[in-house]
Design a protein around this nucleic acid. Sequence first.
DNA 1: ATGAAAGCGCTAACAA
DNA 2: TTGTTAGCGCTTTCAT
Lengths: 350, 350
Amino acid sequence: MAQNQKITINDIAQRTGLSKGTVDRVLHNRGEVSRKSYDRVMEVIRELGYEPNVYASLLAKGKKHLVAVLIPTHEPGSFWELAASGIDKPADPVTAVGLETVLFQYDQYDIESFRAACAKVLEANPSGVVLAPLFQGETEAVTRQFVERGIPYCFIDSRPDSNGYLAYFGMPLYKSGYLCADQLTGGRDIPGALIVRVRRDRYQQSDPTVNRRAGFLDYMLENAPGCKIDNVFIDPNDPDGIDAILDGYFAEHPDVKHIVMFNSRIHLLVPWLTAHPDPERRVVGFDNLKANMEALRAGTVSVLIGQRPDEQVRLAVEALAEHAILGKTPDRKDQFMHMDILTRYNVEDY
Amino acid sequence: MAQNQKITINDIAQRTGLSKGTVDRVLHNRGEVSRKSYDRVMEVIRELGYEPNVYASLLAKGKKHLVAVLIPTHEPGSFWELAASGIDKPADPVTAVGLETVLFQYDQYDIESFRAACAKVLEANPSGVVLAPLFQGETEAVTRQFVERGIPYCFIDSRPDSNGYLAYFGMPLYKSGYLCADQLTGGRDIPGALIVRVRRDRYQQSDPTVNRRAGFLDYMLENAPGCKIDNVFIDPNDPDGIDAILDGYFAEHPDVKHIVMFNSRIHLLVPWLTAHPDPERRVVGFDNLKANMEALRAGTVSVLIGQRPDEQVRLAVEALAEHAILGKTPDRKDQFMHMDILTRYNVEDY
DNA sequence: ATGAAAGCGCTAACAA
DNA sequence: TTGTTAGCGCTTTCAT
């Protein structure tokens, strides 16, 4: 074990015969230092194994770091509520080190509200921002501003094709469809499966489920070639309509049992599923919304695939904090989250 | 938004007409303060919404916090290696805040080495220690010493019946057996299943797998009553013996396909499984050892149930750090980890 | 290009 | 019981 006498800038100032000020200047590449002094300082730093004391530094600059989290407003029980809950999770010692996180929200169906939120974020002049790229064009616009102002940012949930972000935290979408298919079929060929989709007006939003669907279909092609796959569209705001649509479909296709949805709304089917129990049926959906987990416990949904949205924001915030405070850059830019398989037997401690 | 002018102990000193010293005393309940002053200070603190500045505090006391992690030596690819890898995971800002973690190891089959490691831990006088309670009696002994010396400690992996620990991070063992059974059977009745066990000499160690086995058997009783369940014992150090035992068993029981192991050693069966492929067979094991994950990818093992041992130690270290630095106590003492279901389709990003 | 010095907010030792 | 004071290690003017 090496001697643990922390060595300070004073030590290295003495050793070099220079002053703390100069040492500090080289430490932060702040210029105004002669080539010679610079080299000498660097040498001694290495020699003595100097490591800066973060508290002292933070204390001296007296700066609070603020990271902004820019996500849609969350109705209770929604996906974005889960995500938002991650904002307070960064390990307390971290926040204790002078990190403040602020939530900026917008209506995910209203591009104007997104613009407004972006403006507020810029105003707050944060040390970093984490955002979900729901509106493609606008996202490009803000991130360009971030870059201009030297504000690092992280994407969560999904990731545009741009390149200036510090890191991305999210599920591998195509693969998640694959996994989903495997859970639905149990690895066996099945007669048929119904994909329930939400009719979306296109709010200029990107749809992350298309990749997922692609993965699903590819799996089926390879592993369950005999399976007939149908699509049906529902309106989230019309519960009766949902029942009617499902009734209609299954009346015509009594051989089909299995059901899958690629967004987080599998809970919309619970009333119908409850009314039409079938031990043979497998139902697979995504995301650990409260209502979805209820359905899992009740047995109406067989499997849920989770991606820990709260972890995504936690990790993103931490990455930004490390960047701001310690100047570190994550080793991998794209950090894919593990896809959690949830059944009634392991929901409890999720 | 409230005004963000950080208020300091100076402010509250002025407001009360007392000195920083006195304020500091009440802040830390260090006594030597008159009832009256105490009350007044508290009042003003509340009134002004004072919050201490952690950096300043840390800087002033100049104390590095050390947390000791006391776990078995890890051979490469073992369970404890995974656990050990969590030691460096606490978010960097945390370690930056002055946390040092040190690993203390012992031979899990040698109680003397455990005693020695404990002695060293005590010697290091850490601010906290995380340990796995492998040796029951000895664990009681050390923890008693921890309590005496006011050193908080966390258990990981499993948890004795004592009560003085700060927190426990681990898998719910009984439930994990239940989940395991469900994954093995796929929710259907099956003709038979073979439990492969490791013959353990009793090193005075507690065996965490007994609860798991109990959960498994209960599930089977309830949900697969027709299933014949057999046990077979292998010696980890005798690969040929393993093959022989499995050959022997399956020769006699051609109707049985499924195999399960309750410890982390399912990878021991890979040679035999590879030599005897069977698309109908399901094989379920525990823990994401490298060898196990390989088997999953190769398709010889169907499902692995993971508990993120690295997360367990990370969380334990963080809990201890929060306690030491911030004086916080975790809200829940027993923090059960989620049980991860791993298949070939979601191992990749684990 | 470099040095000197005044803090950042808090702690702890010592006086009073 | 309370006040005073000298730092903790680093940053940041302001001189030089």
